[in-house]
């Protein structure tokens, strides 16, 4: 249940501002792909264009193709809502729904869509999703407490549980650990390793060690200067990006000689 994504010649705009230019890449199923690059080079923008979250921003639009299993996600007959059900997303800052309990947060994808579900079915989904997000043991006794009452790291794993509860094929994560302590970070990295067997995972990170620890493929984005569009510089398996990149810019960046 994981899918391959082929991006070809993607230009991403905010109004008239071209934020990301000419990106082509292939994202393999059942693998972890990491995006690295300096701040403002368009990693988040590109990630959000993979599940059509980009167009939620007024004036934002995309040119080019994102093909998943032979279907262009930006085709005129495709409903963005369906795309987002297939391609889930975890945000940089944990954002559980403040009015919902832990269990309701996990079920949010189904509940918000008014899907009918038997009690036992719902309980099973809550348990399996929380197990999947490595959070079950910490919260199993307080599933009816508010989700916003958890610690930051727990909230982030709750958001992951919520994302995998809708059973997506692909999981996009935008700096999922940037607000977390090293222990929660490790928990989430372990989780990414486990999820990899079922999902296609794309993760944005500023942490080189993290990228080298968790990812199979790494893509380096860069930007020529403010106001210029971000571009994909190179993409390759993680080991070679970090040991012998083909581009000078990549080498400078991963060795910390950037800027």
């Amino acid at each position: 249940m994981s899918k391959r994504i082929d991006v070809s010649d993607l230009n991403i705009y905010y109004g008239d501002f071209l934020a990301v230019e000419g990106v082509s890449m292939a994202i393999e199923p059942r693998s972890v792909t990491a995006f690295i690059g300096p701040s403002g080079c368009g990693k988040s923008t590109f990630l959000r264009s993979l599940n059509r979250m980009h167009e939620v921003i007024p004036g934002a639009r995309v040119e080019g193709k994102v093909v998943m299993d032979g279907q262009d996600l930006y085709g005129s007959d495709i409903d963005p809502v369906d795309v987002r059900r297939t391609v889930g997303m975890v945000f940089q800052r944990p954002n559980p729904f403040p009015t919902m309990s832990i269990a309701e947060n996990v079920l949010a994808g189904a509940r918000l869509n008014s899907k009918r579900m038997r009690r036992s079915e719902a309980d099973d989904l809550v348990e399996s999703s929380l197990q999947g997000a490595n959070l079950w043991n910490e919260v199993k006794d307080r599933l009816d407490r508010p989700g916003a009452g958890l610690s930051g790291g727990q909230q982030q794993r709750l958001c992951i549980a919520r994302a995998i509860a809708v059973k997506p094929q692909v999981l996009l994560m935008d700096e999922p650990c940037s607000a977390l302590d090293p222990i929660s970070t490790l928990a989430i990295e372990d989780l990414i390793q486990q999820l990899k067997s079922d999902y296609t995972i794309v993760i944005v990170t500023h942490n080189m060690q993290q990228a080298s620890r968790v990812s199979d493929m790494t893509a380096f984005f860069n930007i020529a200067g403010t106001g210029k569009p971000g571009k994909l510089i190179e993409m390759s398996d993680t080991a070679s990006i970090f040991s012998n990149p083909s581009q000078k810019a990549t080498e400078d960046y991963v060795s910390g000689r950037f800027g």
Partner: peptide, 25 residues
């Protein structure tokens, strides 16, 4: 805005997001 985005990212249509997340909150 993050709550709206969280809802959209779960594949919830805009009108349901407004009714069940924005108004509910």
């Amino acid at each position: 805005h993050e709550l709206r985005e969280a809802s959209y990212a779960l594949g919830v249509p805009k009108w349901r997001t407004i009714v069940k997340v924005v108004l509910r909150t």
